[in-house]
Design a protein around this nucleic acid. Sequence first.
DNA 1: GACAGTCGTGCAACCGCTTGCATTAATGGC
DNA 2: GCCATTAATGCAAGCGGTTGCACGACTGTC
Lengths: 344, 344
Amino acid sequence: MAVTIRDVARASGVHISTVSRTFSAPHLVNPNTRSRVLAHAEELGYRPNRAARALITGRTYNIGLIVADIANPFFPPLIKAAESQARKHDHHIFVADTNEDAALEEEVVRALAKQVDGVLLVSPRMSNALIEQLSREVPLVVVNRQIAGIPAVVMDVARGARIAVEHLTALGHRRVALLGGPRGSWTSREIRRSAAATAKAAGAELTIIGPNAPTEFGGLTVAEDVLRAGATAVLAYNDLMAIGLIEGLLAAGARVPQDVSVVGIDDIMLSRLTRPKLTTVATPTAAAGRAAVDMLLAHGDDRRTTAQIQLQTELVIRDSTGRGPGPHSPADPGDAIAHGGVAS
Amino acid sequence: MAVTIRDVARASGVHISTVSRTFSAPHLVNPNTRSRVLAHAEELGYRPNRAARALITGRTYNIGLIVADIANPFFPPLIKAAESQARKHDHHIFVADTNEDAALEEEVVRALAKQVDGVLLVSPRMSNALIEQLSREVPLVVVNRQIAGIPAVVMDVARGARIAVEHLTALGHRRVALLGGPRGSWTSREIRRSAAATAKAAGAELTIIGPNAPTEFGGLTVAEDVLRAGATAVLAYNDLMAIGLIEGLLAAGARVPQDVSVVGIDDIMLSRLTRPKLTTVATPTAAAGRAAVDMLLAHGDDRRTTAQIQLQTELVIRDSTGRGPGPHSPADPGDAIAHGGVAS
DNA sequence: GACAGTCGTGCAACCGCTTGCATTAATGGC
DNA sequence: GCCATTAATGCAAGCGGTTGCACGACTGTC
C-alpha cells in the first residue's frame, strides 16, 4: 500500500539501486536521472523507510531519551532542548517515562536499544553496574550521574548545594534540614555530601530527612518532620519538594521565610510564580539536553568517547530565604537582598 | 555484533524459523525445543529486533505522540497517561515537540509515519485539510480537534467556557475579556464561540484579545490591554496565560481578584500553587491520553473507526475570582465561596 | 585509432526477521 | 499393516532498502 523504492524505479524506468542512490548518495547519479527520479518520487509521494534503511546501515537516526518523570517540570526544558538539537542533525527523539522505577528503566533501555542510535539516560535510578552493562549493548550518555568510563553530562550540584548552605549559614541559620531525593539518585548523594561538609565547616547542624519522592507531595508530607527537627532553614532536593514543603509549613502555621527559610534546586519555571518566590539553585537543563545529544552523536564517530562534561549551577535568591536566629554575616544583607537577582 | 536470530539458531541446532516461531508463535513449536531455544536465547542475550519484524509484519509496536510544546504543563500528564496505557499493550511512545509550529507538525508526522503504528496528534495547529490528508498516510487520532471522519478525543471546552463565563457574570461582572489562544487552535475557537454566546445571553460585554502565544509570557504582555479595555474579569485560553496575566496585572498595580477576576483553563498543577490560587476549568488530560491510545489501538482492528469521544470539564473555583461591580446572582455567594472546591 | 580512466547504471547479495508451503515423523483408525 | 491426519520443523521468498562489484559508454591522450 505504501509507495516504495520499487514503485519509483518502475515509474522512472531505472533500477531500484539508482533510486536508492538518488536519495542516499545523489552525487553518484546523473543530474538528469536524478531530477527525473525525484519528480516521480514527489508525484507518487515516496518517502524512504527509515526503519528498512536502518536494518542495513545500522543507523536509525533516532535517539532514545529516558526520564524518570515527564510530569516533573525539571525535565521538559531538557527534553525540548535535546529534541531541537537532535532535529538539527536529522535525528528524532524517542521519549520514555519510567515513573521513577529502576526496573522499568532497564526494560525501556533494552526495548529501545535496537531502534535508536543511542540512549540518553537522564537522572537514572538504576545501579552503576547495570548502566555499565547496558552501555555495552547500546551507546549511552548519562545525564546527572558520574560513572567512570561512561560519557556523561552532570550539573555541578555539589557546588550549588555548598553555595546554598553558605547562603543559609551566612543568614544566621544554625539548624539546617536537608530533604533528600529518591533512592538511587546520584544528584541526591552529591547534594548530601556537599551540604554536610559545608554545614560542618560553618559550624551548623545538618539534619537529613529522606529519601523522599522528588515531588510536591514528597515535600508536603515532611513539613512536620522539619518543624519537629527544629530546623530554621531547609535545602530541598528539588524545587518541587521545596514548594510542597512550603505549602506544608504554611498549613502548619509556620511562616516562610520568617520562621523557616527554604531553598530549592533546579529553578523550574514554577519557582518564580509561587508565593513566596523560591530561592533556588539554578541548573542549566536546556544546555544539558543539548550537550547530551551532541555527545551521543559525536560518540558515533570516534567510538568510545568517554568525555564527561560538567555544567555550572547558580544560586538565585528570591523570597523564601531570610535571616535566621544566629549571627548573620555582614557580607550578606539577609532579607534586604535584591530579589530575583542571581548571586555567585 | 548484536546477537541475532541466526546465532540462537546455530547454538540451539535448529533452523532460524524455529527460533522465530519460538517468540512469535510459541504454540507451533515443541515444548522441549522451545525451552532449549529460550535457554540459548537467554544465555546469548538475544532480543528480537522490532524494526526488522516491523518491516515484514507492518506492526512496529510504536506510537507517535505529537504535542505543540512539552514545556507547557498541560501536556506532560497527558503524555504520561498515554505512555503507561501504551505500555500495557506492549507499545512504546515516540514523543515529538513541534514548538507550536504547524509546518513542523506536518514534517514530524511524515517522519514518524513509517516507524509507528499510528500517531496521536495533540492540540494540532495545522489545517483540517492537511490532517485529513495525513490521516490517509498513517492512522491518526486527534486530541483537541474535531474533524468529520477523523477519530478524535475532545474536551468539552465549550461547556467549560460557558460555565466559566456564567460564574463571572453571576459574580456581577459585565465587562469580560477573553484571551484567545494560538492561531490554528480548535480549542481556542470553541472557547471563543461559547464565551461569546454566553456573555451575550447574560447581557455582558465580551472583548476578545488575541490570538496570543499560549504561554505565561503571552498572558503577561496583554495585562495592559486588559486594563485598557476596562474589563473586570478575564477568561484565558489556558492556565499558563492566566498566570502570566495575573503577574502582569499585579505588576501594573491591579489587585486580583478585587479589581480583576481571572479564570484559566486546564487546571495544571501550577494553578493550585500560585497566589492567588487560580480559578480554572479542569480538563481531564490523563483520561484523554488514555482514551486516545485506546482509540488508536482499536483503530487497527476494525479499520477506519471514526469514533469521537468527548470528555467532560469542570469549573474549579479558587481564589482568583471575586465579585464584580454589577449585581451578583444570589445563587452565587461570590467571594464567600468554598475555596478549592469543585463546582458544577 | 587504441587505450586508460571516468561516469552512470544494473545486478545481486544482504540486513534480521516472518510466513506459506513442503517435508518428515509420529499418531490413530479400521 | 496401510492410509489419512496431525505435529514439528525446514526451506526459501520477501519486507524496503543499501552497497560492492561488474559492465558498457563516453571522454581525453598520444
